[in-house]
Design a protein around this nucleic acid. Structure first.
Lengths: 347, 347
DNA sequence: TGTTAGCACTCAAAATTAAAGAGTGCTAAC
DNA sequence: GTTAGCACTCTTTAATTTTGAGTGCTAACA
């Protein structure tokens, strides 16, 4: 049986040493290694006793008798929550790549994913920002040809969408102007919830014979707000998983790679991430904790970035459970702030 | 030494049998197998002699002494060009999935990739259509707020793009209207090549104090035309490659998968495909013939589909060299016609 | 009571060896 | 020109052995 307080100072030190060593080597670590590695000046035999206790407590496990120990999910969790020192050290030292300016946000985000993958050697994903609680900023209808109107819809954060609307007969320029006036004076600055049935009825009434067009436009607006509708997810460095034998067997590799290709599951991850409101904005999922079933043998670190106007996006790093959490968290924070800077410099 | 005409009837039959058997089994095929498989009624010894000739001619190779033979790239090429019977048989028999209608082209194409991957068990890609030789159809400038104009640019085929343009001071509605008039009367129906420096100078002159805006707009137009600019490539079934041992080793898998993730290389493939004008529209690249270096151990089959207005897209199937060419070509043709139908029903 | 040396034991991984089998090339006979 | 027969090659698979890291336990020690 093990003492009341579960973990005394010494056990913590040993656990810490085990995990750190394992993170570095990826090999089960044995008592002798720890005996030398720490400055506790204990013999391997003593360490063995402590390790036996730690195993009983569920922090480490043995892949098989006569192998060293590796951290369990519970062990990793403790490490991430308590043991790990977050090095706030100079970032400049490492020769990590930096984000470069890019004209289009799309390009910038793709680049962000790539840079992050290069710097960490894990697989990464970046979602385009998504308009949670968005407002309508501006609508413009224009005749493209005899039978088609294009509706340009600008949302808060200057997100621009467009839809083609078919009409039976051409509208006169004058009428088009009126409709534009009507739509903009009524709807500008409104959030989706505010555009209710009563308002719609009133609008249609005022539009007279063109009420059908208004209907179509409002449909388009509703359509455009749908979150997922056009959220894009960029991935990079998927093949980094082959650097980690524990994820390289066909089974695992296949699962992870499909999750990355069929973005469906990543969407789920983004939704989860955005819904949780942590103060730091960074979350760590270890093993089974992950919202993405296909990644149950991985650790997943996510963060959100903001654009203002309620626009939020997600960054994710996916790697083996024995990922270098310190480095990953550091890179994550850094990218977060770089993105912030980019987006706020821009406006 | 081998006879003048390289391949007589019997050699062709044997080669055909070898390749067909290899496509099915994936194992090197030996003389005895062929002796039984064909109705030539020849002993294995005779077959061996013929095989020896075929090897000397470069159509088959031996992985090592005392193994059967497998087709060389040259062998595959002959097979695809001459030996293969294209079964024009009923398509309905197979329980292949069909394409379902989808509201957005984007969704349709994603689905197309997925269906194709499911039906063939290979990796697939589908590019969004790209405007080769495109014409400007319509431009609309609108003030979004005090300092920003949005330029909506409609191209032939109703491809809609937009760009935000910053201005120092707001334009009056009247001026905006004038600019719109000016742009549309001058530019509508023009292809990119027609918008030359002289024209630009003339435009700017007419725009007077707002010539700067015109400049920005034209930049935007030029930008928008850039082919690659926003061509999307959807992939599916990447992990199918794990079904084929010859592509499953880390090295190969990694190469293929990165090519699929970093779409850059696929873009190259699309460009190649679109540039070649085959009558059938279907191309087969075997091994080294492929434009994508990372796929040199694969066979790549590509096809184009059309939307009219010069919009063309590409479909691709990537698999092992010993892919089931008959089935692949059949599926390809079918998808091609399904897409055609979809797009023409739509209009 | 906590620590340690010592030793028998376990087990995975690597290396070695052996056996099986598929297939060829060549020769000689039909 | 075709074929039976046989020696030879080389991969694949399985079986066996060796090695070495690491453990758990016991007994002695401070």
């Amino acid at each position: 049986m093990v003492s009341e307080h579960e973990l005394n100072e010494r056990k913590l030190t040993i656990l810490h040493a085990i995990i750190k060593t394992y993170l570095e080597t990826g090999e089960p670590v044995g008592s002798r290694t720890i005996s030398k590695y720490t400055d506790l000046n204990l013999s391997s035999a003593t360490i063995r006793n402590e390790m036996s206790d730690l195993e009983e407590l569920g922090y480490i496990v043995q892949p098989h008798t006569s192998a060293g120990r590796i951290p369990s999910d519970k062990g990793y969790r403790l490490y991430v929550d308590m043991l790990m020192e977050e090095k706030e050290q100079e970032l400049n030292e490492r020769e990590d790549q930096m984000l470069e300016k890019a004209d289009k946000m799309e390009k910038l985000l793709k680049q962000a994913a790539r840079v992050l993958a290069t710097n960490t050697n894990y697989a990464t994903m970046v979602s385009t920002p998504v308009n949670s609680a968005n407002k309508l900023k501006f609508i413009q209808l224009s005749m493209v040809d005899e039978e088609q109107i294009i509706a340009v819809i600008v949302l808060g954060g200057n997100v621009i969408k467009n839809r083609i609307i078919n009409v039976e007969e051409p509208l006169s320029n004058e009428n088009l102007l009126k409709l534009n006036m009507l739509l903009n004076t009524t709807l500008n600055g409104m959030s989706i919830e505010e555009i209710n049935l009563g308002l719609i009825a009133r609008l249609k009434e005022q539009a007279g014979i063109h009420s059908e067009v208004i209907g179509n436009v409002l449909d388009a607006v509703a359509d455009v707000i749908q979150l997922d509708e056009d959220m894009q997810i960029y991935t990079s460095g998927t093949t980094n998983i082959f650097k980690y034998p524990e994820l390289s067997d066909k089974q695992s590799a296949q699962e992870i790679i499909s999750a990355f290709e069929e973005k469906q599951q990543l969407t789920e991850l983004v939704a989860q991430t955005l819904s949780k409101e942590e103060n730091t904005g960074i979350q760590v999922y270890i093993g089974d904790e992950t919202p993405v079933q296909n990644m149950k043998d991985c650790s997943v670190v996510t963060a959100t970035y903001e654009l203002g106007d309620g626009m939020k996006g997600t960054i994710g790093i996916i790697g083996p459970k024995r990922m270098d959490y310190e480095h990953v968290l550091k890179s994550m924070k850094r990218l977060q702030s770089e993105l912030d800077q980019m987006f706020h410099k821009k406006e």
